[in-house]
Structures are given as structure tokens and as C-alpha cells.
């Protein structure tokens, strides 16, 4: 465990990078995912189609492939971002598909009468989506969205393959410089847990707080 204690500042720095990567990507993924879920239930056929193509294409490609493709492939056609920004773009695009599917499932749990009442008041589709349907949909999918978030914490490790100095990056680096893989990876696991466990508690608390009274 000396390896971890001796490198505590490095571990804390790397934990912050992982946390930043996760939180920023998740906020963007929520934005993308909500929008795409809206597309997928929209009355406009081309939007539904666009949403489906995006979800099926991105969700079914390994994240590692997406990251490499974006960083090395897209660079060659002129789309070039820093490695850190690239990691956020890919992580949020990828996680966005899971958010979209989760939110869509949430939308399906909202009683159809709610949307009918909103339409009867003269709300447009986007108004009824954002004012009536989505707020209720989100309440029923807090837990699954939490799982998406926790999966993202762990998926963010793949950013270490494109020069982003997160927890996994540090793990690989220390393993090689100290020759103590077990201690180092237990250290990494501990800091990942440090991020994931409180997230889980926060999600549970939030879920109870927003539960719809029925």
C-alpha cells in the first residue's frame, strides 16, 4: 500500500480528472440523450428516423473503437480536438445513446392521458414534452440513469488510451514504474469506488426525493 500512499497527490489529481471527465460527459450525455429521446417519440418521421440511426449506430460500436476512430480517423478529415475534448465528445456521444433509451423507457411509463391533457390545453409537442412528459419520465428513471452514470465513471477509463491522465492512466504508469501491479490497481479500484459509491447513495437519495406521489 506504500505505493498508493507515496503517490497520494498523483492519485488525487487523477481522481479529479476522472471525476471531471465523468461529470462533464454525463451532463452533455443527458442533453444529447433527452433530445434524442424526444426525437424518437416525435410526430415528425425524419426526426424519429435520425434518432434511431444515431442510437443504433453508436450504441452498438465498442467505445474503444469509437475513441480511436474519432481521435485518429476524424483528425484526417479535419475534425481535430484536443485529446481531453475528444474523450469528452466520444464519452458523451456514446453515453447519450444509453440516456436516450433510458429516457424513452421513462416516457413510456407516463400515462397517455397526461399528454392528451397537455395537448388539449394547446401545448405544442415540445412544450408538452418538456413541461409535462419528461419531468415525470425522469422521475421514474432516476435509478437506471444512475446506473448509466456509474457505467460512465468506469467507461471513462478508456480515455487513458488517448493520453488523458486519469486514474487508469496513472495505474498503468505506476504499475510499470514500481513493478507492483496488485497494490497499484487496488489503489485505482479504491479511488474509482470513492467516486462510484457516493454517486450510488446520491442517486438513491435523489430518487426518493423526486418520487411522484400517486
Amino acid at each position: 500500500m506504500h505505493v498508493v500512499l507515496d503517490n497520494l497527490p498523483a492519485f488525487l489529481r487523477a481522481t479529479r480528472v476522472t471525476a471531471q471527465l465523468t461529470v462533464i460527459s454525463f451532463l452533455l450525455a443527458m442533453l444529447i440523450g433527452t433530445l434524442v429521446a424526444g426525437f424518437r417519440v416525435s410526430p415528425v418521421l425524419p426526426l424519429r428516423w435520425l434518432g434511431t440511426v444515431y442510437v443504433e449506430l453508436v450504441r452498438n460500436t465498442p467505445l474503444l473503437v469509437l475513441i480511436s476512430l474519432f481521435v485518429f480517423g476524424f483528425t484526417k478529415i479535419g475534425i481535430r480536438y484536443s485529446y481531453y475534448a475528444s474523450a469528452i465528445i466520444v464519452l458523451s456521444t456514446y453515453t447519450g445513446t444509453f440516456v436516450a433509451e433510458t429516457v424513452r423507457a421513462g416516457i413510456n411509463t407516463v400515462a397517455p392521458g397526461q399528454a392528451e391533457a397537455a395537448r388539449s390545453l394547446g401545448l405544442t409537442f415540445s412544450q408538452l414534452l418538456f413541461a409535462v412528459v419528461l419531468p415525470q419520465a425522469f422521475r421514474s428513471v432516476v435509478a437506471p440513469l444512475g446506473s448509466v452514470f456509474i457505467a460512465l465513471i468506469k467507461n471513462s477509463a478508456l480515455a487513458s488510451t488517448i493520453a488523458v491522465m486519469d486514474l487508469s492512466f496513472l495505474g498503468t504508469q505506476l504499475t510499470n514504474s514500481t513493478g507492483r501491479p496488485v497494490a497499484v490497481f487496488m489503489g485505482s479500484a479504491f479511488f474509482y469506488l470513492l467516486l462510484a459509491l457516493p454517486s450510488g447513495w446520491a442517486i438513491g437519495w435523489f430518487e426518493r426525493r423526486v418520487a411522484v406521489k400517486r
Binding site: S68, F72, T75, K76, R80, Y83, S160, T161, I162, A163, M165, F169, T172, Q173
Partner: peptide
């Protein structure tokens, strides 16, 4: 800039 493989370094050099 540190990657997990040297082939990525070669790509980054080319780019």
C-alpha cells in the same frame, strides 16, 4: 503525450 501503444504514437506523428 502518452498513449497505450506505440502505433498510436506513430499515428499522432503522422497527424
Amino acid at each position: 503525450t502518452l498513449f497505450d501503444t506505440y502505433s498510436k504514437c506513430a499515428e499522432a506523428l503522422g497527424d
